[in-house]
């Protein structure tokens, strides 16, 4: 028996909107730790790791570890039917081939339930070791989204370079080239507007903008994004989910042949 009650249901709506274009089908894993997911895109270039910690739910009952295969597009369709202020409860019985999403309006005058068929998904989990990154950039998530969108109108790939001067995003395409440099800036009114760069080693890595643009679908989840880079390692783009957990995207770099 599984019953997870999330008062801020909009968080789950936003999570689905942020990952449904990158991944088609995924297993949601439920344990005493929380509600989590790890899934790769079909070409195994990018990976999404989601964690919603059990403490973040108003009610969290998960009698035994459960893995539920879901089509993310279908799940997003159902969650779209929940109001932004609705409380969402996820329910499943042991051995059942369905999951139920229950939506309660804040005033409890409308209660809906949507039952979705589960699916069997063969998915391999990758072991992702905790790594010390050469450079960690924290910046406003809307700024990062803007940069990825703007650069993708010029080129297909972005080179992200971190030096003492700041973080530089560069691209080249048929019509020309573009460079955007963001300097560390901590003298802002709101801490979330800051750009903070922690650098141990200079880093320069190249990534497909197609994927970084998928990641920025998570922008509504958090006002800041953290980009962790090490030479010759996948980049980690993390959006924290207030007091609950995170959505992390991993993307393998491109190399010159």
């Amino acid at each position: 028996m599984l019953e997870l009650r999330l008062v801020q249901g909009s968080l789950l709506k936003k999570v689905l909107e942020s990952i449904k274009e990158l991944v088609n089908d995924a297993n949601f894993d439920c344990s005493s730790t929380g509600f989590s997911l790890q899934a790769m895109d079909s070409s195994h270039v990018a990976l999404v790791a989601l964690l919603l910690r059990s403490e973040g739910f108003e009610h969290y009952r998960c009698d035994r570890n459960l893995s539920m295969g879901m089509n993310l597009n279908n799940m997003a369709k159902m969650l779209k039917c929940a109001g932004n202020d609705d409380i969402i409860t996820i329910k499943a019985d042991d051995g059942s081939d369905t999951v139920t999403f229950m939506f309660e309006s804040p005033t409890q005058d409308k209660i809906s339930d949507f039952e979705m068929k589960l699916m069997d998904i063969d998915s391999e989990h990758l072991g992702i070791p905790e790594a010390e990154y050469d450079a960690i950039v924290r910046m406003p998530s809307a700024e990062f989204a803007r940069i990825c969108k703007d650069l993708s109108s010029i080129g297909d790939t972005v080179v992200i370079s971190v030096t003492k001067e700041g973080v530089k995003f560069s691209t080249k395409g048929d019509i020309g080239a573009a460079n955007i440099v963001c300097r560390q800036n901590t003298t802002v009114d709101k801490p979330d507007d800051a750009t903070v760069i922690e650098m141990k080693e200079p880093v320069s890595l190249q990534f497909a903008l197609r994927y970084t643009n998928f990641f920025t679908k998570a922008t509504p989840l958090s006002s800041t994004v953290t980009i962790s880079l090490s030479n010759e390692l996948p980049v980690v783009v993390e959006y924290k989910i207030a007091e609950m957990g995170y959505v992390r995207f991993y993307l393998a770099p491109k190399i010159e042949e």
């Binding site: 790769m40 070409s43 195994h44 270039v45 990018a46 990976l47 391999e124 989990h125 990758l126 072991g127 992702i128 070791p129 790939t157 190249q206 497909a208 390692l233 996948p234 991993y250 393998a252 770099p253 491109k254 190399i255 010159e256 042949e257």
Partner: peptide, 14 residues
């Protein structure tokens, strides 16, 4: 020419 790497080059299956 650029080559897109895949994640299994960096992370092993669990």
């Amino acid at each position: 020419k650029q080559k897109q790497q895949v994640l299994s080059r960096f992370f092993a299956p669990k």
